[in-house]
Amino acid sequence: MELVIFVITAIVAIIGAVAMLVSRNAVHSALFLLLNFGAIAVLYLLLQAPFLFAVQLIVYAGAIIVLFLFVVMLLGAERDEEDANPIRWQAPVAITMAVLLVGEIIWVLVRQSQDSLARVGSSDSDFGSPAQIAQALFTTHLLPFEVASFVLLTALIGVVVLHQRQS
């Protein structure tokens, strides 16, 4: 059962990613990326991470994709592209090296999977619950949490400043 869900979700994720890559229209690309993010959120559920499932949907699907769509439509840049790449040899070289990279990583993974990728410990049904995440977030990782809030504030001010200078 788990395998069936995984295979279907993985296929959806890969189709979303490839369609994003080849789609000529930037709005379509953003929507295919949304499909991919949704599929990854389902995988988070399979991996006992319900909190991250919610965060993924809210932040990525809800905020980041909407921001992308806003900008694409604001700029009217849906089809702004591709009058042939000036560096002609780039595409074949890029694809060759991408295939090599996949092959290399998969080879290393398969070689390592006997020892270092084996399961550790028994699975705890409470693992990854929001309560457990909050416990770790507000005790061990309190300082990074505060720093993250500061980074968000800085980004907010940065965006405002950027757009003020423009007008």
Partner: peptide, 10 residues
């Protein structure tokens, strides 16, 4: 999930 450690999720 593999290590059953919450730190990676954080």
């Amino acid at each position: 999930n593999q290590r059953q450690s919450i730190d990676a999720q954080i």
